[in-house]
Computed example of a mutant assay.
Amino acid sequence: MKRTIARLATLAVAATLPLVASPTATASGRPSVYELQGDPGGSKFEGIGADERRGVFYVSEVTGGEIHRGTARESQTQQWLAGDGTDGRFTARGITTDSKGRVYVAGGPNGIGTGRPDLWVYSPEGELLAALRAPGDNVFLNDVAIGPDGAAYFTNSNAPQVFRVALDGGDWSVTRWADATGTISQAAGFNLGGIVVSADRSALVAAQGNLGILWRFDLATGAVTRVDSGDITLTDADGLVRQGSRLTVVRNFARSIATLELSGDGRTARPVSQVATDPTRVLTTAKVLRGRILFVDSKFDETVAAPPYEVVTDPVAR
């Protein structure tokens, strides 16, 4: 009964929110499942970035830091960048692309206690443009979004901070753009994670997964305020996807997807629905490519991951 009500709620909002093409549609010739290439010892995945212009997507591998690439029309993906120390990368988390097709990769704990890079920037051809350390000794860069200024904004799961990465005067640089210490309370587990830009481009909206809170970072001032999201449960919030006013929140180990209607300035988010996802998967981040949302099946629930390794367009429980 609850599942039926959730489905009806989703249908009811369809008249007012931007729609995604049916994830199981085959008329376009696009696959509903994309297969990732894993390692013999098992692979786990997390981030995904989509290049709408080129019709390609990138997936980050937590185990080893490899970056995989696929196209909207092909079910098979390929390893695009090697890991296991390539460019100092032993793990990778959030990933996104900018208008020039450049690929930004968050390193999670890659640099903690090692002196290795915390993030990387690559050209569409795979050329390393930058491998940078973020200011601080305990930085866990989790996810990344491109701001209206063209800079990349990375969340830090180990502190209430957002870092800005940009090409200034011919050189790539990373700065601590916002620090919400005193406003955002840190708790055990993963704090700031998924991040998107508000519809009016005035703010960033980030998820604090362990507490189930959405936060608004004003792009003009850096001021941080809590997004009013009503009484909807958002614990385990991981990836965020904004399409117009529709905000999709991927709740990884909660195995659920929450849908909210986000105000243009990102200050409020009206709950719309909560739908259970496939119980055999732990979905992490997601991106829109050619009208469909692509969800990463992380394999985080498996001690030793085993294939198939997949990106899926139909996340709902059956």
Rank of each mutant, 00 (worst) to 15 (best):
D218P: 08
L8K: 14
R54P: 00
R93P: 01
A305G: 13
L262H: 08
G85H: 12
S75W: 05
T4E: 12
K287P: 03
R270A: 15
G49N: 11
L204S: 07
S157P: 03
R102S: 06
V33A: 04
L19D: 14
I195L: 08
G29I: 04
D238P: 02
L219V: 08
T10A: 15
A199T: 00
F57M: 07
G264S: 15
E66Y: 09
A258N: 07
V316W: 15
L17C: 02
S123R: 07
T248G: 12
L141H: 06
G111K: 11
F45M: 08
V282M: 13
A305S: 15
G264C: 06
D143C: 09
R318T: 04
T183G: 07
A286V: 10
R216D: 05
L211K: 13
D297M: 13
V121K: 09
L36A: 09
D278G: 02
G101T: 07
T86E: 14
T96G: 03
K2Q: 07
G147C: 06
F295N: 11
A317H: 02
T248H: 13
F57Q: 08
G230T: 05
G85Q: 06
A6Q: 05
R7G: 05
T96Y: 07
G94P: 12
V162M: 01
A151I: 10
L247V: 11
A130V: 06
P315L: 08
P271M: 04
E261C: 06
A152Q: 04
R242N: 02
D39P: 00
P23I: 12
I95F: 07
A152S: 02
P117T: 02
R176W: 00
F295D: 12
R246F: 00
A15K: 12
V162W: 02
V288R: 11
D168L: 13
A14L: 13
G291C: 09
S263C: 05
I195W: 05
G41V: 13
G150Y: 07
R164C: 05
T225L: 02
K100S: 13
T114K: 12
G113Q: 13
R226H: 00
L204E: 02
G88M: 11
N210W: 00
G83F: 01
K299C: 09
V174G: 01
A286G: 08
G222M: 03
T277R: 14
V139Y: 08
E46Y: 04
R30C: 02
Q186S: 06
P40E: 05
G189A: 05
I293T: 15
G38R: 03
G291Y: 04
Y58K: 00
R53P: 00
V304Q: 15
R30N: 06
Q161Y: 01
T248A: 10
A207K: 01
D143F: 04
T114C: 11
G55A: 04
G41S: 14
D238L: 05
I48S: 06
G230R: 14
R89W: 08
S245N: 15
G49T: 11
A145N: 03
Y122T: 03
Y122R: 03
R93N: 11
T155L: 05
P307S: 14
A207N: 04
A134M: 11
A82Q: 01
A9R: 14
T284Y: 08
R246K: 11
S32D: 01
I232W: 06
